[in-house]
Design a protein around this nucleic acid. Sequence first.
DNA 1: AACCCCATCAACCGCCACAGA
DNA 2: TTCTGTGGCGGTTGATGGGGT
Length: 332
Amino acid sequence: MRKIATENGLKKGPWSEEEDLKLIQYVQTHGPGHWRTLPKKAGLQRCGKSCRLRWTNYLRPGIKRGRFSFEEEETIIQLHSVMGNKWSAIAARLPGRTDNEIKNYWNTHIRKRLLQNGIDPVTHTPQVNFLDLSSVLNSARVDPSTFPNLQTLVNPQVLKLVTILSSLSKNENRELFLNNYLNTMNPYQNHQNSNFTCAPSNLTSTLLNPRHDLMHANDVQNIPENSVNMNDDTSEDIFMRACLTDDCFTIPSYSNQSTAQTSENSSFQPSCTENNIPSSQQFNYESVLSSSMSSTTPLVSSSRFINDITAEHDRESYYGSMFNLDIQKSIY
DNA sequence: AACCCCATCAACCGCCACAGA
DNA sequence: TTCTGTGGCGGTTGATGGGGT
């Protein structure tokens, strides 16, 4: 670990057993807090911040050490897909795990594995260039022999949607179309008061994210009967009329926000803030979180099975099959 | 055996939000 | 309203150890 260094008489680097003992004894007697004055009172040559970190990340009772379980990994992935790099918020849902530990685990294990499986760890979407996809699908439409089984591989509604999107000239328009598309698909959600909201730009990710498709499966049951039926052949026309009206493209704030938040160069924005998004642009993520927040049951149905898998390569193959499975579910 | 490369993760750093004076 | 102290957060660093050559 780090070299032991001193600065202003303060020690840096790894903690010794003796230091740990002093800190534990002091906190057990006086409780945590007042970290600035704690080192002097506890007889430690450390800065208060170092003491606090050592306590919260290592010495605090209830800290769970060791390998992350599959359930924990799934929870991290799903929460990260919603929260982004809000490690403390994620840690709050994983008893015994610290934000630092989760962050490290994400960067060294999960992130790598997602990349290996073709999943963008930032957006949680398959790493497929959207325009390339539409190009492929368009060509397939012109020449069915290219993909003779295309209709059995790709949901016709998805094909329609991609075709429409590819016909829109500006990325901004695509974004707007997608947002309106989804708003129309599930208007019920958009009118719910929610403490947990998401910027509309992330709906694009939601649409293209098989994991989100899976996670929203329960929501489908909540869609009121008068919402648009996507199995209706005329739904595309309905959507085109609904989404391509002038009104859609003349709301400056909407447009600007979408454009800004979907910049490819921008990192995954916390995406889900609680109060800074107008209600008309909010998206209800309650159901996304419900599985992990309100229940101790595994987050995906296959969790029971994966408890028995321990080897790293098994985890990798599990992730591969998990995402493949999700993709299939999402397109059928 | 020696060296190099890389993954891991504890610890640090800089910044920010918030509460209280 | 401003200042200051405190604690929290996310990003980064670097020591360590293991595997490969």
